[in-house]
Amino acid sequence: MTEHLTDRIRDALRVVIDPELGFNIVDLGFVYDIAVTNGEACITMTATTRGCPAAVFLKEGVARAATVPGIRSVNVVMTFEPPWTPAMMTNEARTELGFANSN
């Protein structure tokens, strides 16, 4: 059941796009962890740059999008450890955005 909810949250988060890269944050690898306990979701995520002005909006967007049926509350933790690198993107995102394959 928890795994099902985690997958559902991950799918729902695809509506949140990074405004700079123009791709959803799940396939960009911004979402580090999704944990669900008793209907409470804790999402650990990052952004491309520390201090990025979009980070606040990303965090709020994730909190909104993650409130799927079965989830009562969402806690979003923004972290920059480890720092995001393009290697965290899915192959699809990397190809779509024209990124080099190296780190």
Partner: peptide
């Protein structure tokens, strides 16, 4: 473009599909 995007679409991010900054 970036600041306009944040101003217009940032507050509703996560509610509906929205354009990329490049659009």
């Amino acid at each position: 473009a970036f600041l306009t995007w944040l101003e217009a679409y940032g507050p509703v991010m996560g509610r509906a599909p929205m354009p990329r900054v490049q659009e």
